[in-house]
Amino acid sequence: MAETPSNNEYWAANIRLVTICLIIWALVSFGFGILLRPMLSGIAVGGTDLGFWFAQQGSILVFLALIFFYAWRMNKLDRQYGVDEE
């Protein structure tokens, strides 16, 4: 497919979306689950703290939400830029 301005815009929108999703991905796992856990230790969750919950439950739930959000947004972007499968 030839390079058209429309494609470039589509790709830029995709990269923007991927970047936002990956920032959240890293924040909940490496951030809340590991590196920022000491900062979250004040928030009690069932006998432990929020960081522990993110490491064993929360990050997985956020991962799920991210993938479905991305799939929904991208499929919408495909149609918006007219590059979806007919």
């Binding site: 990956l22 796992s29 522990f52 064993q56 990050s59 997985i60 991962f63 993938i67 991305y70 799939a71």
Partner: peptide, 19 residues
């Protein structure tokens, strides 16, 4: 807690795959 890596690692990879 230290072995939470398995939980986050083996699910977080799907985000990379999908995106």
């Amino acid at each position: 807690y230290d072995n939470s890596s398995f939980l986050m690692g083996w699910t977080g990879g799907y985000v990379l795959l999908a995106l």
